[in-house]
């Protein structure tokens, strides 16, 4: 189990940061804004889901790249595992975002570039799983799905990082501004937000490593 060797610090960081984020998220002061009210605290739990998803997808894409250059099946298993955990975080992000949207914007789903981007991301990776399940030969499956994974991730970059910033959006940070700027987020919010993001990313890595061991064992059997 060499995957689980370096996990000690990741577990430690994840647990301590998340405990801090959950306590701070509910208790620390937040700026008082109309409509949002206290629900601005959802920021600490909803946005880290997307950060985690993107981070895990990036790792998955790097592993796919390793597979096509080094031709070892373990890299493909890794990339598959990271993708599945990333999609799980994406679903959590969509669910939490839908509830937040219902109580601030008034409806579960709006035609917003960021929502469209997240929905398309999930569609792309669901079809990635479908692609995998439709091929029976292991090597061929690994090869084709790695190629698709790299291509899909590269096509997501303009969709997620550039397109929402150029069109009008209900989310903050649209219309030319970078994601979160001084006006959207003050020091109080950042003090909990960044630890929360890191904590969820570490949690994502932790879950992926556990799942990786499971998938490797499954492949060996």
């Amino acid at each position: 189990m060499e995957e689980l060797k370096n996990l000690k610090y990741i577990k430690l960081f994840s647990v301590s940061l998340l405990i801090y984020a959950f306590i701070g998220g509910f208790l620390f002061d937040v700026p008082a804004l109309p409509i949002l009210n206290e629900s601005i605290r959802v920021l600490y739990f909803h946005v880290p889901m997307w950060f985690t998803m993107i981070f895990l997808l990036l790792i998955s894409c790097i592993n796919s790249f390793y597979f096509i250059s080094r031709k070892k099946i373990i890299y493909d298993t890794k990339s598959y595992t990271y993708t599945s955990v990333a999609v799980f975080f994406g679903f959590l992000g969509i669910l939490s975002g839908m509830i937040w949207a219902k109580f601030t914007w008034g409806s579960f789903w709006t035609n917003d570039p960021k929502l469209n981007g997240s929905a398309i991301t999930l569609l792309i990776y669901l079809s990635y799983f479908l692609l995998r399940s439709s091929i029976s030969d292991e090597i061929k499956k690994a090869k084709i799905s790695s190629v698709y994974n790299i291509f899909a991730f590269a096509m997501l970059i303009p969709l997620i990082f550039i397109l929402p910033r150029m069109t009008d959006s209900l989310h903050p940070g649209s219309g030319g501004n970078p994601g979160f700027n001084v006006y959207d987020m003050n020091a109080q919010l950042r003090m909990v937000f960044y630890p929360s993001v890191l904590g969820f990313i570490f949690l994502g890595i932790w879950i992926s490593k556990l799942k990786l061991v499971l998938n490797v064992l499954k492949n060996d059997n």
Binding site: S127, S134, I135, I144, V147, Y148, F151, L159
Partner: peptide, 29 residues
């Protein structure tokens, strides 16, 4: 955008369904 997707789905049997599923999300933006 679609050329590589069709090359991917060419490698799979029953590819007429697969190509639709693979290409739709990428072509939407």
């Amino acid at each position: 955008c679609l050329t590589l997707i069709s090359a991917i789905s060419f490698q799979i049997k029953r590819n007429s369904v697969i190509i639709g599923i693979l290409s739709f999300p990428i072509i939407i933006p």
